[in-house]
């Protein structure tokens, strides 16, 4: 029995800026991180490994440098890490991405039964929340989204009971395995890698599967297989508010400016 976590390497969005001239992300020198929601998916797979003795496998689709994300997963203790990397996978939207991940999961399922596929609820760069459900649809898995707690897992009877965190309420859902689960941050606190595990991870083999293994029709994957694409990315215009003065270097002068402004708009009585 195995559980799979799908991880995406994303640019550290706190550091991403948009080039005002070209309206594209400035990615130069921006470090990549594992999508924060996915770190919780990974952690949940590791907890099931620890508690139920299932195998935990990490999957990631991305360019060769996405290996770093999988190496980190190794340092946290996954049993296997597989990078899905091929030029033909590039430029994929959520549909094309879910096709590649699904093909890889099917391939894994031929070796060993898959009980759960874990995904983060969404990524911080695309924010679509579609890839997890896309995998569930492609593979015919029951989908349990926005899970913040696994209430009960019965591997013998192949059932799972989870709590979904919805706006203003919780929902307890039971489903037969196999399932696809997307997790929210509250589900767990990811572990921190020990140094011996980090050192061991640096020597671990990260398997790379390209399309010669997955054998997908190139028309259905990557840019070609993507019915959607980003045509423009931009920062919204600031339609209200203004930054006045330089509060850091001239706090008194700036306070004066603010007072004058408030007085002029008759918002402050003297």
């Amino acid at each position: 029995m195995q559980v799979i976590s799908c991880l995406k390497q994303v640019p550290d969005t706190t550091q991403v800026q948009i080039d005002p001239a070209t309206n594209t992300l400035v990615r130069d020198g921006i470090p990549f991180i594992t999508n924060p929601y996915d770190t919780h998916a990974l952690e949940e797979s590791l907890r099931l490994r620890d508690d139920y003795g299932v195998r935990a496998v990490a999957l990631s689709m991305g360019p060769p440098n996405a290996e770093a994300t999988l190496r980190k997963a190794c340092s946290l203790g996954v049993d296997d890490a597989i990078l899905l990397s091929d030029r033909s996978f590039g430029g994929a939207d959520t549909l094309a991405t879910s096709r590649v991940l699904s093909a890889a999961i099917e391939r894994l399922a031929k070796q060993e039964e898959v009980a759960i596929v874990f995904c983060g609820k969404q990524t911080i760069d695309g924010d679509t929340a579609q890839v997890g459900p896309g995998i569930a649809s492609r593979l015919g898995l029951h989908q349990l989204t926005l899970v913040d707690r696994i209430e009960r897992l019965d591997l013998g009877n192949k059932t799972i009971r989870v709590r979904r965190k919805l706006e203003g309420r919780y929902e307890i859902v039971e489903a037969p395995l196999p399932v696809m689960i997307t997790v929210v941050r509250e589900i767990n606190q990811p572990r921190y890698p020990t140094v011996p595990m980090r050192l061991a991870a640096s020597e671990r083999e990260i398997k790379v599967w390209d399309n010669s293994q997955l054998k997908l029709d190139v028309e259905t994957i990557g840019l070609k297989g993507s019915p959607t694409w980003v045509s423009k990315i931009f920062s919204p215009e600031r339609d209200q508010g203004e930054i006045i003065g330089d509060g850091l270097n001239d706090p008194e002068g700036t306070t004066q400016l603010l007072l004058e402004k408030l007085l002029s708009k008759d918002l402050l009585a003297v």
Partner: peptide
Amino acid sequence: VQEKAEFPSELLTLFENMEQRSNPWGIAPS
């Protein structure tokens, strides 16, 4: 910290901020 990864939970964010953004607050180096 290094062999058991056992420490007060607040430190997880600190350690990750230090590794990813090399400052305790996790603010972008830029």
